[in-house]
């Protein structure tokens, strides 16, 4: 009961903090817009596969974003693609952090030989270039969202593992964890009750960052034709645009809107993350308060300690 109330106030506090921070507000608004498009949009537009008119018509009142090289409605494709691309993006973002946490936290918590081995493992994965590896794996497997997700997780988890290992190592040395070990609690309990809760904001930031990665890499692989080219996603839209020589026929509307959407979602998520950072970073908060204090008193922030007499 009391747990539920604290959680509610926690969420309310976050909502207020996001509202106060400009970057977080921008990010949250952009993300909300795209989530709405992804969830409800497909019911509002026509079937993206239907051939609705002459191919490569520029934007008009009838087809707001024109038609593709096959004669489909670009707007329908964009909206329907939003749902699939975002779903894969968020699912992969979450999965990548879960895998990274499993390996990183295990390495950081147990230390010693376990740490040495797991660290070597993720460092090797970190240094092997992801895109070529993803291409090879995706080429062998039957194309589809599952393949795509799997490939993105395999090539994307290592960075999270590395960061979470370092964080766990730092937390482990904290006194309260040592006390919990002495008290004979199980490792699983210590990790889930004592260590993971201290890293909540880091984990959220990682999910957001990994989602940006997942959307970008997914679009890249599909652009190469490694997705299911008969499905409608942002990446396959770009694949078909390239295949239909959109550039050489001057059909900018077949690729420009999709790229813009990828960028807006990525930008929104990144803004959300740097907004979180501003909210949770005490150093940035102090500096901001200092700057405001000076500007309110008509002083410029200076490198040498500023002098603001407040008795007058």
């Amino acid at each position: 009961m009391s747990g539920a109330t604290t959680q509610a106030t926690g969420i309310a506090a976050w909502r207020d903090a996001i509202r106060r921070d400009r970057k977080a507000t921008i990010g949250a608004v952009m993300l909300t817009v795209f989530l709405f498009i992804g969830i409800f949009g497909p019911w509002l537009v026509g079937d993206p596969d239907t051939l609705v008119g002459i191919p490569l018509q520029p934007p008009s009142g009838e087809h707001w974003l024109g038609t593709t090289g096959q004669g489909q409605d670009v707007l329908s494709q964009l909206v329907v693609g939003t749902r699939v691309s975002l779903a894969i993006g968020f699912a992969v973002g979450l999965a990548v952090v879960l895998l990274g946490a499993l390996i990183g936290v295990t390495a950081g918590y147990f230390g010693g030989r376990v740490d040495g081995l797991l660290s070597l493992f993720f460092n090797v994965f970190l240094v092997i270039p992801g895109m070529p590896l993803a291409i090879v794996i995706a080429a062998y497997l039957p194309s589809g969202p599952l393949t795509l997700g799997l490939v993105l997780v395999v090539t994307g988890w290592a960075w999270n593992a590395r960061v979470l290992r370092a964080q766990t190592l730092a937390q482990r040395q904290r006194v309260f964890v040592a006390a919990a070990v002495v008290a004979g609690e199980s490792s699983f309990r210590i990790v889930t009750r004592e260590i993971l809760p201290t890293m909540t904001s880091l984990l959220v930031a990682q999910v957001v960052g990994s989602t940006v990665y997942a959307i970008g890499a997914q679009v890249g692989l599909e652009f190469l034709g490694l997705g299911d080219v008969s499905a409608v996603t942002w990446g396959t839209n770009l694949y078909w645009a390239q295949n239909d020589s959109a550039l050489l026929t001057g059909a900018w509307w077949t690729f420009a809107p999709t790229g813009l959407c990828v960028a807006l979602v990525g930008f929104g998520l990144t803004m959300l993350n740097s907004g979180f950072d501003e909210i949770t970073n005490p150093r940035l908060q102090l500096e901001r308060a200092w700057r405001k204090h000076l500007l309110q008193r008509g002083k410029e922030p200076t490198r040498s300690t500023p002098v603001v007499m407040d008795n007058d």
Partner: peptide
């Protein structure tokens, strides 16, 4: 001490 050299970093302010 650092105020004497005016090298106190933010968020310090000499106020009188």
């Amino acid at each position: 001490a650092q105020a004497l050299l005016r090298i106190l970093p933010p968020p310090a302010v000499i106020s009188g």
